[in-house]
Design a protein around this nucleic acid. Structure first.
Lengths: 343, 343
DNA sequence: TGTTAGCACTCTCATTACTTGAGTGCTAAT
DNA sequence: ATTAGCACTCAAGTAATGAGAGTGCTAACA
C-alpha cells in the first residue's frame, strides 16, 4: 500500500511524463505548486517507489519514468474511482443527430474519437449474427448476371453479384428466390448456413430443375463468410507521438494495422465494460509498447461490438477512459432506442 | 541529343541507382562488363551528362544520381519503345477467374499489383455516372425506418437507411417508390439529380400528400454524393524503401493517403494510356519526392477508371510500366466482354 | 526523527577533432 | 581520344571533451 506522500508523487510523475514524455527529476517535482518538499526528500520517496516497482530510471542518473506497474496502479486506484461522474456532451451531439445509418454512426464515432484524443481509434461493428433476414432479393442485370441483395432486420444490407449459369432459366431463378424468401425470413444470420443445408435444399430439389448448380452459385454469392466490420480512425495520429521516432516501430505498427484479422483479434474480449491493457500485458508482440483501452457497447445483455483506443503506454488514461465510457454508454442507449422502435 | 556512349552510361547509372539507391561512381561503372572504358574517361562523360542536367551529385565529391530530367529521358527514350512486346501472364490468371464481382476484381488487382512491385497501388473504380438505374427499392425495416436500395445496370448497389417521418404512411411510401421506379429506370446516375428535381417532383406532388417532407428524406438518403470508389494496396510497402528513413516523409505521406479526395484528385487525368509523372512534375507537394504512374482502363472510347502505382522517383520504371500496361489492357478486355454480355 | 543542504559521482547529449574511404577534376603522358 | 596519376573534397564513422541534469549519500538541522 502506498502512503499519501508516495501516491501524490507517483501521480505527479505520471501526469508530468504523460504530458512531456521526458523523465521526471526530483528538482522538477519539488518546484510544482502542489508539492512542498525539497528535492532531497522527494529523492527518498522516489527511491522507495522505484524499489516497489512503480517507476524506473532510463539510465543510472536519469529522472524517473512510470513503469507498467505504475500505470496500472494509476489506472486502477487513481482514475477508476473518478470515472462516471463527469458526463461528456460532445458525444451526445454526435449521436443525437438523426440516427440514419448505423454504419455511418460508427464510422463517424471512430473519427471523432481519434480527433479528440490524437490516438488511433478502432471500432468493431456490431455482431450481425443475431440479426435476422428481412428480405432476400435478386435483381437480374442481364441474361447472364444478377445481383443478390440481403436485407436484415437491423437495416444491414449485403450484396453480391454473380453470373447466372446458362442452364438456369429466369423462371427457375424466380422460383428459387421465392423459396428462399419464404423459408429464410426471420432466420438469424448465424443459423443461415444450417437452415439452408437442411430445409431449403430439399424444398428446392422438388421445385427447381437442376438445382444443384443454381444453389452452388447462390451460395458462393452469399453464405460463406460474414465479415466483421472494422472502422479505424486516425491511423496517422500516432506518428506525431515522440515514441514513434523509431522507424521500425512505425513499420511494424502499420503492418499490423493492415492485417484486419489481427486487429479484430486484438479487440475481441469477453469482458464487458472498460478494459485497460498496458504494454506487455497485451498478448500481441506488435503492440507491447502500446496501451489499448477497450469498451464494449451492447444491446441488453448481449454484447454487440467494441470501441477501442490505441496509443503509447504514456497515454492520457483519464481522458481516454472517461471518453470511451461516455461513448459506449451513448451507443448502447442509441442502440436500445433504435431496437425498441424496430420491435 | 545524346551520343551512344553518353546514353549507355546514363542508362547504367540509372539502372544501378534504381537497384542500389546509392550514388554511382566512375570506378564502379568502369567495372561493369558492358563498359570497356577507364574510370577517367567515364568521368569525362559524366561531367558532360551533368552539365546537360541528366545526372547530379549529392555533394561536391560524391558519385552521381539521376536527376528528374534523367529519369524523364530514360522513361521516354529508353523504356517506351520496348513496352508492349512482353506480355504478362500473371495478370491473365487474375482476371480469367470467374468475373463475379467487379469490386472484388479491382480490389484483388490492387493487391496483386502492390505485391508484385513493392510499391503502393491505387485504383480508381469505374465512373458510375454513366451507368443507369436498373431498380430502386425500399425495404421497410420497421414502422420508423427503411432501407433504400439502388441497383444499376452495371450491377452496382448503393444503399442507405433512413428514418420514416411520422407523417408519411406506408401506402404513401409505396406510391413514392412506384413513381420513382417508373421515372428513374434507365436514367443515368449523372442525370439523376436533375431528373428528380424537374420531372419527379411534379409527379409526386400530385399523388402524394405532404410530399415535400418525404422527398427531403429520400433525397438525403440517396442523391447527394456519389462517392468514387478507391482501392489502395500495399500502403506499407513504401516504408521498406530507404528513401523513407525520414520520419517526416512518412508522416506527410500517410497523412495524404488518409485524405481520399486528395488521392482521387491525384489520379484524375484526362489522358488515356500510360502517364508517368516524376517528382516535381507532379502538382501535389506531398508527393514531390515520388513518381506516379497512371494507366486508364476503359470501355470503348469512354474512360472508366484509373490504375496507378506510387513509388520513389528511384522506381523500377520498366517493370512497372510493363505491368500497368498489361493490367489496364486486361481490365479493358474484361470490361468489354462483360459489357457485351450485359448488352 | 524527519527534513534538507551540500557534494561527489554518473550518465546523456551535443560539440569538436580526427581518420578513412570513396569519388572527383585536372594535368600530363600515351 | 584515352588513360594514369595525383591533389583535393566531402560524408560518415569514431573518439575525446565538456556541460547539464539528475542521483545517492552524508552530515547538519529543527
Amino acid at each position: 500500500m502506498l502512503s499519501d506522500r508516495q501516491l501524490m508523487i507517483l501521480q505527479v510523475i505520471i501526469d508530468d511524463f504523460i504530458e512531456s514524455a521526458h523523465p521526471v527529476g526530483s528538482r522538477a517535482i519539488s518546484k510544482k505548486d502542489e508539492i512542498s518538499l525539497s528535492a532531497a526528500s522527494i529523492r527518498n520517496v522516489m527511491s522507495d517507489l522505484e524499489e516497489m516497482g512503480y517507476i524506473e530510471k532510463t539510465h543510472s542518473s536519469s529522472g524517473r519514468v512510470p513503469s507498467e506497474k505504475g500505470y496500472r496502479y494509476y489506472v486502477d486506484n487513481v482514475i477508476a474511482p473518478t470515472v462516471g461522474k463527469s458526463n461528456l456532451y460532445l458525444m451526445k451531439d454526435l449521436i443525437r443527430d438523426e440516427f440514419v445509418d448505423f454504419e455511418k454512426l460508427v464510422q463517424k464515432s471512430a473519427e471523432v474519437l481519434s480527433d479528440l484524443t490524437n490516438y488511433t481509434s478502432i471500432i468493431l461493428g456490431p455482431e450481425v449474427f443475431e440479426t435476422k433476414v428481412k428480405q432476400l432479393q435478386i435483381v437480374s442485370i442481364s441474361e447472364y448476371s444478377a445481383v443478390a441483395i440481403l436485407v436484415t432486420d437491423s437495416g444491414h444490407v449485403e450484396h453480391r453479384s454473380f453470373t447466372i449459369p446458362a442452364e438456369i432459366s429466369a423462371s427457375d431463378l424466380e422460383k428459387i428466390v421465392n423459396i428462399l424468401n419464404e423459408r429464410l425470413k426471420g432466420v438469424s444470420l448465424a443459423q443461415l448456413p444450417e437452415v439452408i443445408t437442411t430445409e431449403v435444399i430439399s424444398l428446392m430439389r422438388i421445385y427447381v430443375r437442376d438445382f444443384e448448380k443454381s444453389f452452388k452459385y447462390l451460395q458462393s454469392a452469399f453464405f460463406q463468410d460474414q465479415p466483421v466490420k472494422l472502422y479505424i480512425g486516425g491511423k496517422t495520429n500516432l506518428l506525431a507521438q515522440p515514441e514513434f521516432n523509431d522507424i521500425n516501430k512505425v513499420r511494424s505498427f502499420y503492418q499490423m494495422m493492415e492485417n484486419e484479422d489481427r486487429v479484430v483479434n486484438l479487440l475481441k474480449t469477453p469482458q464487458h465494460g472498460i478494459k485497460v491493457t498496458i504494454g506487455n500485458e497485451n498478448e500481441f508482440d506488435e503492440i507491447k509498447d502500446f496501451s489499448l483501452i477497450t469498451a464494449s457497447y451492447q444491446l441488453g445483455a448481449e454484447q454487440m461490438g467494441t470501441i477501442a483506443l490505441l496509443g503509447p503506454t504514456r497515454m492520457e488514461y483519464r481522458k481516454v477512459i472517461t471518453l470511451l465510457n461516455a461513448l459506449s454508454n451513448e451507443m448502447t442507449d442509441a442502440l436500445y432506442l433504435w431496437y425498441k422502435n424496430n420491435g
